[in-house]
Simulated scan of single mutants.
Amino acid sequence: MTRTFWVILALIVVVVGGFASMLSFGGGSSRIPWRRPAPVAVPAAVPQGVLALPVVGVRRDQIADSWNDPRGDGTRGHHGVDIMAPAGASVVAAAPGRVEKLFQSNLGGTTLYVRSIDGATTYYYAHLAAYAPGVHEGQVVRAGDPLGYVGDTGDAGAGNYHLHFGITRMAPGQRWWEGENVNPYPLLAARGAGG
């Protein structure tokens, strides 16, 4: 085979590889068309005891307190806050920590858990359309780092796009699904916190 043949073959492999790298294969639970995420601005310093907003483009005054609202035909209370947002809106870390678990569940759909640096708090992100590229268990994140995209997976209901955001206080040795649920609303809607 000639040198020209090998050069042409190499060019074909590079072009096909470049095209393939732009496609998404398997695993994604997204029902929205893929698009390159908009750049995420890392929020300015957030006052102590206040969280960064976990959905880009949502203001604090747009968040409603849905804590303990009836769910499951009144059989349980809502342990979090639903943040309504357009499908595919960027979901970012509300606080620094480490991605502890990526998980698929019947209720939460595509979910992600971030454990705080001190291990005492877990932040729960549910109903995601997909994870942000490169997000993986063990990853250290700062407030504002991309985690995923708003979706309607799990029991959210088709077209009911929102992020379910929950907080649990953790005792030493507790795992990602354990802990005491805490109302995140006061930490998200705090006045004078910006955003």
Rank of each mutant, 00 (worst) to 15 (best):
P54G: 00
P54R: 02
P54K: 01
G57I: 03
V58D: 02
R59M: 09
I63S: 04
I63H: 04
D65A: 08
W67V: 03
D69N: 10
P70V: 10
G72M: 14
G74C: 00
T75F: 13
T75A: 14
T75Y: 11
R76N: 11
G77L: 11
H78M: 14
G80F: 04
V81P: 06
V81R: 04
M84Q: 08
A85M: 03
A87G: 12
G88I: 05
S90Y: 06
V91P: 05
V92C: 00
V92Q: 00
V92Y: 02
V92M: 00
A93S: 09
A94C: 02
P96G: 13
R98S: 09
K101T: 11
Q104E: 13
S105C: 12
S105E: 15
N106I: 10
N106L: 10
G109S: 04
G109A: 08
T111Q: 13
T111C: 12
L112E: 01
V114S: 03
S116L: 07
D118N: 03
G119E: 03
A120N: 08
T121A: 01
T122Y: 05
Y123M: 07
Y124S: 08
H127G: 10
Y131E: 13
P133Q: 14
G134N: 09
G134D: 12
V135C: 10
V135W: 12
V135L: 14
Q139A: 02
Q139R: 10
V141M: 06
A143L: 11
D145P: 07
D145M: 03
L147C: 03
L147P: 00
L147R: 05
V150E: 14
